[in-house]
């Protein structure tokens, strides 16, 4: 698997967020937190992560899913998971 850039993951995430929150105008940045997006609760968080797993073909551990505080952190986790998967 080729290395994914931060920008690519961010754009994937943005597409997933737009779908899940049903809002085509949503724009994400590294500092976006759940407080800023109406409806981003723990159930939506799980949906987001599952969608990312599917899109990037990775599996995260349960403890990581709940630990994600903001967008930057989420992207870091996803990149790490993608790299780990591609080393296998």
């Amino acid at each position: 698997m080729s290395e994914l850039t931060r920008a690519e993951i961010q754009s994937d995430l943005q597409e997933i967020f737009r779908r899940i929150f049903n809002n085509e105008d949503l724009v994400l940045s590294d500092s976006t937190t759940s407080a800023e997006i109406p409806g981003w609760d723990s159930l939506q968080q799980i949906k987001i992560i599952l969608a990312c797993e599917k899109k990037l073909n990775i599996r995260l551990r349960a403890r990581d899913i709940n630990a994600l505080e903001n967008m930057g952190e989420m992207i870091d986790h996803l990149i790490a998971a993608v790299n780990k998967a591609s080393r296998k």
């Binding site: 723990s42 159930l43 799980i46 599952l50 349960a62 899913i65 709940n66």
Partner: peptide, 10 residues
């Protein structure tokens, strides 16, 4: 059918 991780999460 079963997803134990999802069950423990939510």
């Amino acid at each position: 059918w079963y997803d134990e991780r999802l069950y423990h999460l939510c």
